[in-house]
């Protein structure tokens, strides 16, 4: 390499040594917090201690939601098979109609299990009334709903 090229080379490398790690660190710091679906800590071992409060549905008779102890967790049991794609459980403050779809005020709880059980942490919303909605995201269809009657 000739001298001007070596000098240009050194200049480029010095700039890269500052810019590239700085950009990489920014990128890592900007990583979004992603909620990760986890089993409710109490659920697996304690759901026999369920408080007794239970919510059932009129169409999907195999599905029930019970409260985990006296915590803000819920335990969902589905003894049947799902016949719709992407079936999700929502909580929503309003009374849903047949044409209901997720709104900005509704809260996605998580997947509805297929012949299985799942638990979710709900927070204070658990006892604030509203309605549980079972919704097929694949068919954009409300499958069932039931009032939230959990109380303190």
């Amino acid at each position: 390499m000739i001298r001007p090229l070596r000098i240009r080379h050194r200049y480029i490398i010095s700039c890269l040594t500052i810019i590239v790690p700085a950009v990489a660190v920014c990128g890592l710091l900007m990583r979004p917090e992603r909620p990760i679906m986890q089993a409710h800590p109490e659920a697996a071992s304690h759901h026999s201690h369920a408080s007794g409060e239970k919510i059932t549905f009129s169409q999907l008779k195999n599905v029930s939601i019970s409260r985990v102890g006296h915590s803000a967790g819920i335990h969902i049991v589905n003894r049947g098979r799902l016949t719709y794609p992407d079936v999700l459980l929502y909580w929503t403050p309003e009374e849903p109609t047949d044409a209901w779809g997720p709104t900005s005020s509704s809260l996605l709880v998580g997947l509805l299990p297929d012949q299985g059980e799942l638990s979710y942490e709900m927070g204070p919303i658990l006892t604030s009334g509203g309605t549980w909605v079972i919704y097929s995201l694949g068919h954009k269809k409300l499958l069932d709903h039931s009032r939230n009657t959990f109380s303190f």
Partner: peptide, 24 residues
């Protein structure tokens, strides 16, 4: 030569591509 020094720009772009893509 100047054009082939763009390889350093390509490297910097790819670090951005990977850090802001797959690593997110």
């Amino acid at each position: 030569k100047a054009m082939h020094m763009l390889v350093y720009a390509a490297y910097a772009f790819l670090v951005v591509h990977v850090v802001f893509g797959a690593l997110q």
